[in-house]
Design a protein around this nucleic acid. Sequence first.
DNA 1: CAAATAAAACCGACCATTCGGTATGTTTAT
DNA 2: ATAAACATACCGAATGGTCGGTTTTATTTG
Lengths: 208, 208
Amino acid sequence: MSDARDTREHILNASFMLFLQKNFKEVTMKEIVERTGLSKGAFYHYFSSKEQVFEEVMDHFFAAGIKQNFESYSFETLKEFYQDYIKDAIAKMRSFKNLRTDNNEETFSTNHYFLIFDAMKMLPSYKKKLLDNNQEELKYWKKIVHIAKKSGEIKTTMTDEQIAKLFIYSGDGLGMQLIMSDPSAQKMEKFKSELQSIWDGLYNALKG
Amino acid sequence: MSDARDTREHILNASFMLFLQKNFKEVTMKEIVERTGLSKGAFYHYFSSKEQVFEEVMDHFFAAGIKQNFESYSFETLKEFYQDYIKDAIAKMRSFKNLRTDNNEETFSTNHYFLIFDAMKMLPSYKKKLLDNNQEELKYWKKIVHIAKKSGEIKTTMTDEQIAKLFIYSGDGLGMQLIMSDPSAQKMEKFKSELQSIWDGLYNALKG
DNA sequence: CAAATAAAACCGACCATTCGGTATGTTTAT
DNA sequence: ATAAACATACCGAATGGTCGGTTTTATTTG
């Protein structure tokens, strides 16, 4: 059942759960080892350091939970685009909820912004990844806004960049506020409906 | 020149600078002591623990750098309101730039979101303060939006709450993105001009 | 097939270092 | 002389990491 590959993944998952709750310094080797149910020897058989497991955890988190595949979104209309965006964001969030393989249902408060900031400070390559992703996101938003303007879907005095940034920043800001306030119960649902409401409102204002 | 009160303040300032750069766990007593130029004995003469100095630092930071006095903003027009908002935000940021009493000019990268998250996790009362402030902010934005609608300053299909949140969240999101990307050189100027641009664009769109 | 061997997986006592904090001073101002 | 202001050697606990070993699994060999 549990060969070497599984054990490695098991350690990565357990570590990820811990890093979602506390920052790098706060998570101790003792905790990681206890959480995995293994020993220090086992851990250091698979990883050379706490830093290394953190780095691998973050790489996976970026690929599965942050990096967006904008090419897969609809570029027919702005409305379709941001609907796809919301869907994708929710799907990503959901994929991590299912990661808790163990039986504990405790609603532990997570803060992935914390995690991201920590990773950016420690790992220069990670920072670059994130900034690249941000830049790409802006590019695609500007693209769909341009299309929507040309097709007549929206009529506005705002520049493409202003509109694009308004969508992006409002999404980021909402996410941060929710993480700060909500004890993560129906955080996801709330995020979805709030974002929908705000972006719909903005969209309708741009249409008129 | 340096009586007891000054020494205390000196320790608070030095600690604050450190907490702006690293989280609570990462900042060590050794660093605080070295930064102040004093000794451990001196530190513990004024403070009972690392937690205590952190708590006091955060209290001061909240009062001087976060808490907004909305009552002092103009409620004549939405435009005036958000102009006052920007002015106030910049003034708060500037007040911390001048806090570096020592001669080192090094542009160290700060991340006050990091600091805030840390404080929220450690200090329940601080979390409450922040959430209260957020709620109050929303209240005042809704108020001025309502006024602007009534006076005919803006015409839109969006609800007061949607508009208010759009302003708030876009500001938050911009702040976070800037902190992530910029090496803090002209961060302040960039924040100001970007926020001005986005909010002006949004405002003009709402004017109809 | 089973016995022998090799290799991978895993364990836990141990290590040096650093942590926040204390105890016992010495200096300095009143 | 007294007390506040500082300094420093020191403390136990916790830290990330190591190392010699045992157990388990896989491979080879008779």
